[in-house]
Write a protein that binds this DNA or RNA. Sequence first.
DNA 1: AATTGTGAATTGATTCACAGCT
DNA 2: AGCTGTGAATCAATTCACAATT
Lengths: 194, 194
Amino acid sequence: MYRLSLYYRNLQRLKANQIATVSSAALAKAAGVKPTQLRKDLTYFGQFGTRGLGYDVEALSRKLTEALGTARLQPVILAGAGNLGAALVHYGGFAKEGFEIIAAFDADPRRAAELRVPLLRMNALHAFVADRGVKMAILAVPATAAQAVVNELVAAGIMGILNFSPTLLQVPDGVVVNNVDLALELENLSYFIR
Amino acid sequence: MYRLSLYYRNLQRLKANQIATVSSAALAKAAGVKPTQLRKDLTYFGQFGTRGLGYDVEALSRKLTEALGTARLQPVILAGAGNLGAALVHYGGFAKEGFEIIAAFDADPRRAAELRVPLLRMNALHAFVADRGVKMAILAVPATAAQAVVNELVAAGIMGILNFSPTLLQVPDGVVVNNVDLALELENLSYFIR
DNA sequence: AATTGTGAATTGATTCACAGCT
DNA sequence: AGCTGTGAATCAATTCACAATT
């Protein structure tokens, strides 16, 4: 659930500010949703609040960590070390939320210098993934190569793919794909203007 | 509507392959939706198909161009020329869908060399936007600066913002924000694995 | 025979309204 | 008095089922 992560993020801020307790109204406002929705979302996992008071920031935060399975730093690999891929390696936002890109893979390992993670050949993929227990990959290769690379990722044991190429990927059951289609987002935006 | 752009994209491919006519079943499959949904989506604008035959690729494509207001090359500016911003300037996917990043703005104009568009100071924003009739901006600044920059963008006349910073932006009515929260996407993905 | 267009049915998500705790 | 938890109501999106058209 998308929104849980959002709540979690805002709880971290409250915690950092030493705030011990928060109402559904306040937290919902920070996350940009309605209070009832937040409460519904939370009760899907159990009851965490105290009536008349609100939610204990620390306790709720712990529960969400658990629910989200964000307990530990998740290792992620990058497939495709082009412009976008390289930028994603440097992007600070992932680390902040508990993800670390631990290696990049590319058919052509030239830009190694600019990256700050090991850049490996695709043929090292299988061993690396098995060895490090990696479950997730970020896919930032050209659309033409996307499906072929996905097949390799899946064969290597990757279970979740964050896909930046504007293609409909074919994956077996059990493998999850999350698409981020940048051009589509812009197009959508332009549609809603005027 | 998100899916319209998707249909449009696939129609372009068909057109490139000289295919004159397509059924809702075929186009829906390519776009990853159900045929009925595609038909519902299309009839929201009018009736374009011929029963027993399908849709004329050329005609439908034209209708969608019109409906999407994608008539042609929309100029976009970039606010924030850090890693992510720079990568977005180089990202080929935008141009392919009819968007061109025509300038970047940053408080600190140092990385100009790496960019292939003019890198301007924020104080040049207002004049530039007015002059070139820019309606859309991509926001790729640190979260802490996001709201301040948005305020400037809005003041300059920007009506649509593609926001890459993990923040809930405050904008006046009529201004549209589309959020792309990369860390959230990864987190969401990790939630759906196992 | 094939395939669209669409009202009706279904499913899903959000919001309301208020009872129940503290 | 304040605020959560939740069944019921509402609203939105998707899918079904089939008549209409070429």
